[in-house]
Design a protein around this nucleic acid. Sequence first.
DNA 1: GATGAATGAGTGTTCATTCAT
DNA 2: AATGAATGAACACTCATTCAT
Lengths: 211, 211, 211, 211
Amino acid sequence: MGNDNSKETIENLLKSAKKEFAEKGYMKASLRNICREAGVTTGALYFFFKDKDDLFRGVVGGPLMELRTCLERHMSEELKELDNYTPGMDVNLEDDMAAAAEAVKILFKHKEVFEILITKAQGSSLENVVDDIADLMNKHYTDMFWNMKGYSSKKQMTKEDKFIVHWMAHNQVDIFVHLLTHCKNEKEGLKQLKGMFAYIIGGWFGVINNA
Amino acid sequence: MGNDNSKETIENLLKSAKKEFAEKGYMKASLRNICREAGVTTGALYFFFKDKDDLFRGVVGGPLMELRTCLERHMSEELKELDNYTPGMDVNLEDDMAAAAEAVKILFKHKEVFEILITKAQGSSLENVVDDIADLMNKHYTDMFWNMKGYSSKKQMTKEDKFIVHWMAHNQVDIFVHLLTHCKNEKEGLKQLKGMFAYIIGGWFGVINNA
Amino acid sequence: MGNDNSKETIENLLKSAKKEFAEKGYMKASLRNICREAGVTTGALYFFFKDKDDLFRGVVGGPLMELRTCLERHMSEELKELDNYTPGMDVNLEDDMAAAAEAVKILFKHKEVFEILITKAQGSSLENVVDDIADLMNKHYTDMFWNMKGYSSKKQMTKEDKFIVHWMAHNQVDIFVHLLTHCKNEKEGLKQLKGMFAYIIGGWFGVINNA
Amino acid sequence: MGNDNSKETIENLLKSAKKEFAEKGYMKASLRNICREAGVTTGALYFFFKDKDDLFRGVVGGPLMELRTCLERHMSEELKELDNYTPGMDVNLEDDMAAAAEAVKILFKHKEVFEILITKAQGSSLENVVDDIADLMNKHYTDMFWNMKGYSSKKQMTKEDKFIVHWMAHNQVDIFVHLLTHCKNEKEGLKQLKGMFAYIIGGWFGVINNA
DNA sequence: GATGAATGAGTGTTCATTCAT
DNA sequence: AATGAATGAACACTCATTCAT
């Protein structure tokens, strides 16, 4: 197992890498700068990380997985609950709100990292991570929509419904992004989240009554 | 004004620049490639354009100005109309819809350019152009909100209201982005726009009733 | 068209590249050294040459083509003459000797370059050039062998004959290599060539009588 | 002597080194890869081998020595026999053939290693090993030549004779190389060796009658 | 015997930009 | 209006080797 030195080196590297990526974005970030700042030679970096992209994932991978796990857990739980719903029944929005709140907490817990992922990842293998998450949520919103519309059977969704559901998934992600980039801390983020939920829910009903 | 040769050179440059920016994004785009593709030397490029960023603005500047002009015109017209409103009166959503439709038309008219601006501008001076437009629309949405809430006088907006209005401005822009990147042409874009309007309006009422 | 400066730059580069390749071989040659020696920046090198391999071919390409052209010309001439032969007739060895002599002259005219090609090309796209030339000559030797054996018709060559002919082609190339690397100049090379021809011809008859 | 562990480590290293050298050649071979493949750290490698070159010699040293020993033994035996020759007597070609056959057997016994030595040793201290062996055989061929020409006393050899003898030594080595690289196994190698001997012997007589 | 961390010089290559002509 | 040559710093990455533990 590694000694204290190696742990420290890795941490120094991750720390200065985070700083550099946040300042310049993935592409313009210089490994030389990162190493210099970390007080380490380039060779050392390459002992611990395969390449620039690996270093990037080293910086953002943990928090990203934490967020993904959280979202997936909530989505699978909600999926189970949906089985108990009778058509026309109210969807449990409180659970959804709680799930969103938990996600917001994670976002603010690693604010710097998620800001990097949202706006500074271009060029890395994670440059599409925001869209990936939106796609992940698309399924959840599809189920949700199905239930809210009170469909009695699994008839085919229209192209327009598919589109609007896809948009709602993206929109939910945009809300997270907006909260993270416009609120100064978790507390404020959670407070504003409520107002945005009113917006979303209003939007849903607007769509459903319109369709 | 320049002769035909220079016009042609510029057009060749802009054309191959557009292609390169679209393929690789601002940062990874190579001026060498652009010049080679345009059948022109680097020196020539630098005769017409100050630097890489200037060339980028040369490619996207026209359409961007067209969009900005369109949005500003609608916003100032609507501002005038708002003076005639009595508190509590219905806001004219049809006008808003028409304005949005016109914007969508412009977006699809220069689909390639706006796709560049939305997803490939990182590193250029226009990398924040989407946010800039959202900020531009913030004022409009503030007025709108004011009216819909039936405020009789210009009393101070709460922090929460400011936030939600700012979000709505962003959200409107996100809709444009989503339409452009998920619809294959203007016709489909306009069709889906209607469904999204139902979402937005529902959202507004959700917020207003909630606040 | 380029001015005098560019010609000079290219020549300086080729000259110092030749020196570096000769000293260290393709792989260990350093482009930085080459540029420094040529009094030029790395960027300039890459204006004239696509990459390291291109520079290498720039150094050796001319002489190599000269040699190839010479060999191919002789081989096609001899091919024509062979049509006039009656089975059993003597092959005209004097022509073969003259062709070899001309090749030797070319080798010594560009002694440095061919030494590079023979022993220092590993890692470059021309690393198999010696074998390539042997393969080229294989066809010629096949025709030759056919005639010397006095075959009246084109019956199939045995596997053993094919092998020995292939070897003779390689052997001819080895002779060229040996002359170039063991004689100090063209004059001496040509003198020794005669002795080696006696060896080859003896070898041929040894094979033919044995087979 | 080392315990079983160390033996195993060494063997793993040699095995994966052989593979890497065969695939990439001495220069491009990476000690990192070799260690990884052997399941060993770089430090361990450096405990057993002084440096890259030492590892290379570890891989090829054994078979190379086996070959050298074989050749030297045959040459010294033949030297003894030559003392009994009367000028003009037939040289015993069968012995020479037997010696060559034995060498061929060794070559095929360690086919991979000798292929490395012949084509992949550039950059190592053994990069000239083929020439070295040719030089080793030069003495033998000098004696041989002396005897075949029927010299009664040790009068000076001409420069031309020296050259041709030196060439014949090289040529013998080239034959070994050719057999190893063009025959798929020992059996085929030995078969073709006979045909090549006819070539060599014919060559000798060609030279002797010509000189 | 062997680990794992670290070195530091080196690699080929690309880049936006400049400028004399 | 345009050329073509040249700059020089920067890039990500690899290497054989060392050494305290």
